[in-house]
Design a protein around this nucleic acid. Structure first.
Length: 273
DNA sequence: AAGTTCCCCTGTTAGC
DNA sequence: TGCTAACAGGGGAACT
């Protein structure tokens, strides 16, 4: 499931591949993907001028619009030199002026795309009205995070996954952030100190930046038309490591459920507050 | 107001 | 072996 680093990889790759391409036609096979009215007619004739990311949202800016995409769990873009033969799971195809096709592929059909009038500050885009600062934005800092959570009765993991506080963390990185911060994700937010928040924010930025670097490294081995999936290899410390020994203390990592998300914890290294 | 639950989907895995 | 049921998960709507 793409989180901020994977989305960054996707947007960077697309920027290098389709910048200044013009959309001459759009074929839609599953229109629930499209959230705004008259999407196809509006986007026809528009060109991909600039590319940005806030949290897990991809933002393609054209002459008139911000074209906003959320990949949710399994959304992927493929660039094809010829019209795809296998249309299974392909829901939207953008025909580009140079003859290539930008294909949106999504097995679970959870992804969404929308078109809004272009704005200078992307945080003002209606698609992002409930989205907090991107995790790499300087405004996502320790005091901001502390002020957002210190009166909350929720647990730490729920706060990390709450995109209205900070945007870009998904289930995998939430576990990794808690591990690196040595805090149990079940800890109550109201019991966390400013020091804890400093550590959490520091580790969040460290992990996300590291993952973006890893993604950037991996992407170079891609052959051009094969696709833009944003997959990358990152060394995980706890997530998916059920029953494996913690690399620090060698106790078994446990799996539990928090906020209906599978959650991995080293209960020895990660303090529950 | 804050927090929780349900729902959207379908490939994969567990259970019989 | 082959079937069905349970499960996974991001985010928004609906609900408490």
């Amino acid at each position: 499931m793409p989180e901020a680093p994977e989305v960054q990889t996707v947007i960077s790759t697309l920027a290098s591949q389709i910048k200044d391409s013009t959309i001459v036609d759009v074929t839609v096979y599953y229109d629930k993907i499209l959230e705004t009215e008259d999407f196809v007619n509006k986007i026809k004739g528009q060109s991909f001028l600039s590319f940005s990311r806030i949290g897990k949202y991809l933002i393609f800016t054209t002459e008139k619009y911000d074209f906003v995409v959320h990949l949710r769990m399994e959304g992927k873009f493929y660039i094809m030199d010829t019209f795809p033969k296998d249309l299974k799971h392909i829901h939207v195809i953008f025909h580009l002026d140079d003859g290539r096709y930008l294909c949106y592929h999504d097995t679970r059909k959870f992804g969404r795309m929308a078109l809004y009038d272009k704005v200078d500050n992307k945080y003002d885009c209606p698609a992002l009205k409930n989205v907090g600062w991107d995790v790499l934005d300087d405004r996502f800092n320790a005091m901001y995070f502390y002020n957002k959570i210190h009166k909350s009765n929720r647990n730490l993991k729920t706060a990390l996954l709450d995109q209205s506080i900070q945007a870009g963390i998904g289930n995998i990185y939430a576990d990794e952030i808690c591990f690196m911060s040595r805090l149990d994700p079940r800890s109550r937010c109201s019991r966390l100190s400013k020091k804890d928040c400093e550590k959490i924010v520091e580790m969040t930025k460290y992990i996300i930046k590291g993952a973006i670097k890893a993604g950037g490294t991996t992407i170079r081995s891609y052959t051009s038309s094969l696709g833009v999936t944003g997959l990358f290899q990152l060394q995980l410390h706890v997530h998916t490591k059920k029953d494996e020994p913690c690399e620090i203390c060698h106790n078994k990592i446990i799996k539990t459920v928090i906020a209906s998300r599978g959650t991995y914890i080293c209960t020895h290294c990660q303090k529950r507050k």
